[in-house]
């Protein structure tokens, strides 16, 4: 779990590297050298910076980002929960630790439009599979949760890596 506090310091070189990677590393023998050339920096510097950002947790991971939908995980359920504010700091991490939860965040309620403060993304090959997984979350939250819903996606209108405009 990581509380959202101040960001670790990154400079303009780090920003340039991050922005250049968000469309994906080139699929060639020396992808970091190709990336370095694209941003006009030495390859060794680019690799050092990536390593430093990994250690500082600015970068969570470097790896393959699968498209779950195209791999058969066609049921994408955003489960949303109205959890007691006193209990959420303890229960949130327990939900986030479930291996089938791909994202788990606390967000503010926006009453009366939006009563839920805990979001857990659950992927499955079918809605039935998602429903079973949501039941596991419900059991963990127990009576500390007043109500919940699962919002299934019906269309992906846009999905790209992080983009930053200067």
């Amino acid at each position: 779990m990581n509380a959202i506090g101040p960001s670790p310091p990154i400079d303009d070189i780090d920003r340039r590297i991050i922005i250049a990677t968000q469309a994906g590393l080139p699929l060639c023998e020396r992808p970091y050298a190709a990336l370095a050339e694209a941003v006009g920096l030495p390859a060794t510097l680019v690799m050092q910076r990536l390593q430093r950002m990994l250690e500082a947790r600015v970068i969570r991971r470097i790896g393959a980002v699968p498209n779950h939908y195209r791999l058969g995980y066609t049921a994408n359920g955003m489960s949303v929960w109205d959890v007691d504010d006193d209990a959420i700091t303890e229960l949130g991490p327990a939900v986030g630790a479930l291996d089938f939860v791909s994202h788990c965040y606390r967000r503010p309620r926006q009453l009366p439009l939006w009563p839920y403060n805990l979001f857990a993304m659950v992927h499955g090959r079918s809605r039935c599979e998602v429903t079973e997984k949501v039941a596991v979350i419900a059991a963990i939250l127990g009576s500390q949760c007043r109500r919940h819903e699962v919002l299934y996606s019906t269309r992906i209108l846009k999905k790209t890596g992080l983009r930053l405009t200067e």
Binding site: R57, R60, L164
Partner: peptide, 30 residues
């Protein structure tokens, strides 16, 4: 390299690269 390129062409691979921690760079909201 060939298999990764094929997976990307089939849409099963979105990309290979760093996944950035939210708010580590810039700000965002849902």
């Amino acid at each position: 390299i060939e298999r990764f390129a094929a997976l990307r062409a089939e849409g099963k691979l979105a990309r290979i690269g760093p996944v950035i921690r939210p708010h580590a760079v810039g700000a965002s909201t849902l």
